[in-house]
Nucleic acid binder design. Structure first.
Lengths: 364, 364
DNA sequence: CTGAAAGCGCTAACAC
DNA sequence: GTGTTAGCGCTTTCAG
């Protein structure tokens, strides 16, 4: 049985295709009787309603917006910060009727979602350094909002005060008297498919020249590290920077153990994220180091995780939901604006230090 | 500036549109030199690569699969069971390069995502009774997999043994000696826009004829209730069934409080979900009722939540990740099969009672 | 290896 | 109110 299209119905009813189209899209452009007949016939023939793809082609819009995530889409459902962000996006999108399409930055089978999936606009939330997806997206000329990326003159961006938050975290432990401070960062290689570069900047381990290494990192990682380091240096404190290159609790715990097993171990550790901070907590527990008695730990994000561990994490809170709302709003207005890009909004949400049980004064 | 299309490049290079198309899609159909020229020109002109929508129209596939969720998309990012399911779907989709589109069952502004968004197939994971979305989807003739829905002869389905799990839960409290058992169910009205029907089956409160009321509920709710009730009746125990009509912790707590404030309050409560069970825990705490000393509470799902409360919940575990994997797999194979629907797979995953601290023997 | 023809299914913009 | 014309941007034949 051939597919039922507008034409099928038009032939059956004996009207033009256009009239059938109108029956679906512009109810007031034709007589009620005609419309009823058409709809009845469509129903009888099992017509599905106008084909979304064809309609998208001619209208130039697809009814969905994309969110570019990591290579690993499931991350978007697993990480507390990501889910909060996406929930906000979903909420903000609801009144518009737009669907939400999750795009993985790395396609398979020759498919590059960022290039091959029809969307009306994109939230660039990728956590990858791999620039291909971003390039495809820019070239498509789609309305796009950068989230947690280095601001760009041409594109709206939404982010948080990573630098300020990091400084606040560092100043907090400094105020508690700590002078040898570990810094555990995540980053550099965004995916697992980045070639090992021989500059000592790849892989986990202690970084001899963190600022130099950070130059190639993703924006947020670099900003947070700078905040930590600037505050520490300003106070003349010693920074022991270690890097975790892979996602997951285990790599974080391993690296933290390495940091804490060194002869002159730090008395406080500032972490790029709560996830890493939990790794530090685990390592400390393994090594019999008391937190916060012997070691202070500060996380970042105020992930739901932060209050689920003992002691609860002192951390830098970011408003992931607000970030999602702002990003979605920016995208929606960019979608509406069309070409006439009047201004390029740049939203920077504040961060806030939340002191909980994982930090304490330096023991004499 | 006019849009750059295949034709633009073809004109520029002086070849036919087809050759340019081939340069992108069938690299081995033309000379390397030609291809290089074309690609270079495309790049120079800022060509984006073939337009996804146009390609989708002619190829008949869009590169994305949809998941139909509730009215409230954000639910998919907030509920532990949903995120686990979706993470599995995302993982299973990764090797195919398919994007994941979240469809809300209820569109806005005249848009019905289930009808208006282009997808190649759909996972029907809606938690709404509202049949419109489902109808649109069926009519579109898209490959579709039912998740946690009443199995249907024509469509593949994936679900869990809700009935068996519920029976096991009931038998557990029965074995502990409980004879007056509360049952807290969720359901009936799926959305907030369902008209109040005057049959006493809507709204929260105690149900006088639970089985009758359940007839109109969504499948999972009905199955679980049946399991609870069958086991309870078989043992000659008394069932006190209350229903919660709205999502959220507060409605659950309120209804639980009503149930537990009654003169002859039950000594055990079986819940439709862990979320509801947590509400019972809260109500019990408010009322000074000790769990499990004075009251046993059983949840359902083994939501991550279950081990985050004190006492940890005795619950019926379901494998949400496995469910997602199975559903995605079924959809992928349906996508591949095309029309020749050989068989209609029906997957029913087992459930398992997990006894934790929220249940205990009936105190004499 | 390259090109010409023929649409995919639909809808703006007008004409009748 | 209803029909006609003209594509949207691309790819599938099938010639050359």
């Amino acid at each position: 049985m051939a597919r039922v299209t507008l034409q099928t119905i038009a032939d059956e009813v004996g009207v033009s295709r256009m009239t059938v189209s109108n029956a679906f899209n512009k109810p007031d452009q034709l007589s009620a009787a005609m419309r009823a007949t058409i709809l009845e016939t469509a129903d009888r023939l099992g017509y599905t309603g106008p084909d979304p793809t064809a309609r998208a082609l001619v209208r130039g819009s697809s009814g969905a917006v994309g969110v570019l995530l990591t290579d690993d889409l499931a991350y978007g459902f697993r990480d507390g910060v990501a889910t909060e962000f996406l929930a906000a996006v979903a909420d903000a999108l609801a009144p518009t009727g737009l669907a939400l399409t999750l795009l993985s930055s790395q396609g398979r089978e020759g498919v590059v979602p960022a290039r091959d999936v029809a969307v009306d606009g994109v939230l660039f939330f990728a956590c990858t350094l791999d620039p291909t997806a971003r390039e495809w997206l820019s070239r498509r000329g789609l309305p796009m909002v950068l989230v947690d990326q280095e601001p760009d003159d041409a594109l709206p961006s939404v982010g948080i005060d990573d630098y300020g938050g990091a400084r606040a975290a560092a100043e907090h432990v400094l105020a508690l008297g700590h002078r040898r401070v570990g810094v555990l960062v995540f980053g550099g290689a965004g995916g697992d498919d980045v070639d090992d570069v021989d500059d000592g900047a790849e892989g986990s381990g202690r970084l001899t020249d963190p600022r130099a290494a950070a130059a190639g990192w993703k924006y947020v990682a670099e900003r947070r590290l700078s905040g930590f380091l600037d505050a520490l240096e300003a106070a003349g404190a010693e920074a022991v920077v270690h890097r975790v290159a892979e996602h997951g609790d285990q790599p974080a715990t391993d690296e933290a153990r390495a940091m804490l097993s060194a002869p002159d171990r730090p008395t406080a550790v500032l972490c790029y994220s709560d996830v890493l901070a939990v790794g530090v907590l685990h390592a400390a527990a393994d090594l019999g180091i008391d937190v916060p008695g012997d070691l202070s730990v500060v996380g970042f994000d105020d992930n739901p995780l932060a209050t689920r561990v003992r002691p609860e994490l002192t951390t830098v809170r970011q408003d992931s939901y607000g970030k999602g709302t702002a990003a979605a709003q920016a995208l929606i207005s960019a979608l509406g604006a069309g070409e006439e890009t009047t201004s390029v909004p740049r939203v920077v949400l504040p961060t806030q230090l939340v002191v909980r049980g994982s930090t304490g004064p330096l023991e004499a």
